[in-house]
């Protein structure tokens, strides 16, 4: 048995391991994937919101996929303020125009990008939002200005179905 050479038995071993590995993988995957969002959770993927009663300078919070979504009808001053910020001053540079397609309406996930708390409205050093958990300050465009959060508050996919209705998701 000193000859080191591939024989038919080696081929059988390798083939057995390979088939075995595929079999184990195919058995384990359903056990892992069952923990991913199920069909009923995915079915709640979009929400329609009537925003006709929201007056300028007010924010409403709606629940979408179990997370709060802030919908703020911004005043003229707030829009001017959001647009006047220089991109160099931002930790995660993003133009206000890219965040609010219709500048009057700011729609974003009310979830701090640090560790997921809900920031408070009209608080903090930048007249926007302030996260009480670990002290992140956001401006009136929902962009991170100060604190540990790495990125701006996320803008979800949304569209105006008509003048008074926003569809999120």
């Amino acid at each position: 048995m000193s000859e080191k050479k591939t024989n038919r038995r080696d081929f059988l071993f390798t083939a057995t391991y390979a088939v075995g590995a595929v079999g184990v993988g195919a058995t384990v995957w359903p056990m892992i994937d069952q923990m991913n969002p199920d069909a009923s959770v995915k079915a709640l993927a979009s929400t329609e919101v009537d925003v006709s009663s929201v007056s300028p300078g007010k924010t409403i919070t709606v629940l979408w996929r179990g997370k709060p979504v802030f919908i703020r009808r911004r005043t003229e001053e707030e829009i001017t303020e959001a647009k006047s910020v220089k991109l160099e001053d931002l930790k995660d540079p993003q133009k206000d125009e890219d965040r609010a397609k219709n500048p009057e309406w700011l729609v974003m996930l009310g979830v701090c990008t640090h560790l997921g708390c809900v920031p408070l409205d009209q608080k903090g050093d930048y007249n926007g939002w302030f996260c009480p958990c670990h002290g992140s300050h956001y401006d009136i465009s929902g962009r991170i200005r100060k604190g540990p959060a790495p990125t701006n508050m996320e803008v979800p996919k949304y569209e105006f179905v008509n003048a008074n209705t926003i569809k999120i998701g």
């Binding site: 923990m35 991913n36 969002p37 199920d38 959770v41 179990g66 997370k67 560790l115 997921g116």
Partner: peptide, 30 residues
Amino acid sequence: TVITNLFSAIPLVGEGIVTWLWGGYSVDNP
């Protein structure tokens, strides 16, 4: 929410892992 979000710090796969841990898009019944 805070502790499971720690996993979102992992580059690339972090968000996917958090969704998998939650079984949804936030901490909820699953």
